[in-house]
Design a protein around this nucleic acid. Structure first.
Lengths: 197, 197
DNA sequence: CATCGTCCATACGCAGGCGTATTGTGCGAG
DNA sequence: CTCGCACAATACGCCTGCGTATGGACGATG
């Protein structure tokens, strides 16, 4: 009937679920034990401490996240389509977004901060590389990458906290199209004019 | 030498500081008391419970935030300059940004969720009204508003967690200019072409 | 000086979480 | 069968935080 023996990864996955739902602070050994229908005795056989559990959960998240997204996007050669694919992929998985936002929110925790910094760095670098083929200078590519990533993260947050603010259904597609079209320059040398203000 | 008697607002302000630094979970009466050099006895004279403190802090934040920003921006008549002003204002105050992100991260808490939803709603409505004068249809205005607000929130988060990702110093101005120029259509009827992909 | 209200300190009970120590249970190997 | 090991339950001490109860300290007021 039931899976008799738990593994360390089972605990790590449960921890990620808890994080997605209530943040890192919600990762308590005893509450996870209740959810897994066991007691602390089980936990302390698999892990030395709560800190070790968090490290395992973060490691699991890091590999999952990077593997899934980078692998998926690396198969697309056209840089424009690659950016679009990343955008669309991340806009669909709700849990993945919640998880990432919850982790980003726990940046005071140095354990989390280190992993988050590394993951964000890798994602930004990926996007930046896409833009390198679309704009004139490396500095421009960096700016566009930060711009696009910011929009992406912010949209996730808006979708989580104010779902009514993001147009739903058919209009959602229009919204995505607007973002993508705006964030992906059409000619290699296109950048907005500089006479604003 | 010292302000002998604390007020309820002193406690609320301290709570906001704690939230900005460690999230809502970091608001503990006893730690705040330590910081304020008093004991719990003081707190429970001013407030009935921790929940009451959070409510007061949230109320304080809501009025401060809306008053400051809306009042500042309402004096600018040109919708383009108004959007730019909001963007620039929010990009400068570090504490304000941290605070907002910390609150957004605590959306599971229904107390926080309600306030956040209301504040975000008001801000989005403000931006949407600006765009109404810049684009053709109301639906477009809503999309642009969500787009711009997402970029804004995401930039805050990037600035907090990966300050190196956002170009610093002089390049920071370039980044802001890129975002603003891209996010503020120059002619009333301008929207990106629809033949992408 | 006596008294009262305001503001805070002290002391307590209680709950929940971390980590440890000890004990139990099932199962494969010999 | 029994022995040993992987896995889990139980019980404990400790800390931290919430909330309460009660007792000052101190200034205003009469």
């Amino acid at each position: 009937m039931k899976q008799a023996n738990l593994t360390a990864e089972d605990w790590a996955r449960a921890a990620l679920d808890a994080i997605a739902q209530g943040g890192v602070a919600a990762v308590s050994i005893e509450s996870l034990a209740r959810e897994l229908k066991v007691t602390k005795g089980s936990f302390y056989w698999h892990f030395r401490s709560r800190k070790a559990l968090l490290q395992a959960a973060l490691a699991l998240w890091e590999t999952q996240e990077t593997d899934d997204i980078i692998a998926m996007a690396d198969e697309i050669s056209d840089p424009r389509k690659r950016i679009q694919a990343v955008f669309r992929a991340a806009s669909t998985s709700s849990r993945s977004g919640r998880l990432m936002l919850a982790l980003a929110a726990s940046s005071p925790d140095p354990l989390v901060a280190e992993v988050m910094a590394r993951v964000t760095e890798r994602r930004l670098e990926f996007i930046r590389a896409c833009y390198e083929q679309l704009v004139r200078s490396p500095a421009e590519a960096k700016r566009w990458a930060a711009f696009a990533y910011s929009t992406f993260v912010g949209s996730l947050q808006l979708a989580r906290d104010n779902p009514d603010a993001l147009p739903q259904g058919q209009d959602m597609h229009e919204y995505l199209r607007l973002c993508i079209n705006t964030l992906v320059p059409r000619q290699p040398a296109l950048e907005p004019l500089r006479k604003a203000g």
